[in-house]
Simulated scan of single mutants.
Amino acid sequence: MGLFRRKKSAGQVRSASKADTSHLDEWASSRTGVEAYVEPRTHVTETTVLLIAHDGEWTRRRIADFDAAREFARKRSMPLYEVERVGYPKRMREYQERQKRRNG
């Protein structure tokens, strides 16, 4: 009877941690021209912050919510953008292309 029935389980999505914030801090302090981009929560991931340096290098980590992202950026005097409104910057895509060619 229940041959094709799947048990639904509420998957647990990992929330932001101090390790996430520490990584973002260390990464941002070792690069220049860093900007923060907030990515909204989805069914799969919590809210994330994407930090992008002047050359397009980037890193992404979870953050509690939009307000936490805004506070993170404000404390570090970096601009904050919403990915849903502005998209990803061209320099990030160009950086990814350079990495693909390099790792070929």
Results as ranks from 00 to 15, higher is better:
R70M: 08
K75H: 10
F66P: 00
V44M: 13
R70S: 06
L51Y: 07
K75M: 10
T42V: 12
E71S: 09
E57S: 15
F66D: 03
W58P: 05
L51F: 12
V49A: 07
E84K: 13
V49F: 09
F72A: 00
V49K: 01
I52F: 07
A69Y: 00
I52R: 06
D55M: 03
H43Y: 14
R74C: 05
V44P: 06
R41Y: 06
V49D: 03
L80F: 03
R60S: 12
D67I: 04
E57L: 04
D67P: 05
H54E: 14
D67Q: 08
R76K: 06
M78H: 05
F66S: 01
E71G: 02
F66W: 03
F72R: 00
A69S: 06
W58H: 15
E46G: 15
R62I: 01
R76H: 08
R61H: 07
R41L: 12
V83P: 03
K75W: 02
H54D: 15
T42C: 08
F72T: 00
R41Q: 13
A64G: 01
F66K: 04
R41P: 14
E57Q: 11
G56H: 05
S77Q: 12
R76E: 04
R70V: 08
I63W: 02
K75N: 11
K75L: 07
T47Q: 11
R62T: 06
E57W: 07
E57A: 15
D55A: 05
D65V: 02
L50N: 12
R74L: 12
R60H: 09
F66R: 07
P79Y: 06
V83G: 02
R76F: 06
E46F: 02
T47P: 10
T47K: 08
A64H: 01
A64I: 01
R62F: 05
L80A: 05
T45Y: 15
I63Y: 01
E82S: 14
D67R: 02
A68E: 08
H54V: 07
L80T: 06
V83D: 05
S77L: 08
L80M: 11
R74S: 12
E84Q: 15
E71A: 08
I63Q: 00
R70T: 04
R60V: 13
L80S: 01
L80G: 03
V83N: 04
R85G: 10
H43A: 15
E84G: 10
L50T: 15
A69H: 00
V49L: 14
A53W: 03
M78F: 08
R60L: 08
R70F: 07
L50R: 12
E84Y: 11
R61P: 04
D65L: 00
R74T: 10
G56C: 07
E46S: 14
V83M: 14
R41W: 05
S77R: 11
Y81L: 04
A69E: 02
A53M: 04
L80Q: 03
R70W: 08
T48M: 13
E84V: 15
E71H: 08
E71T: 13
L51K: 06
L80I: 14
R41A: 15
D55G: 04
R76T: 04
L50H: 09
K75G: 14
D67K: 01
T42E: 09
F72D: 01
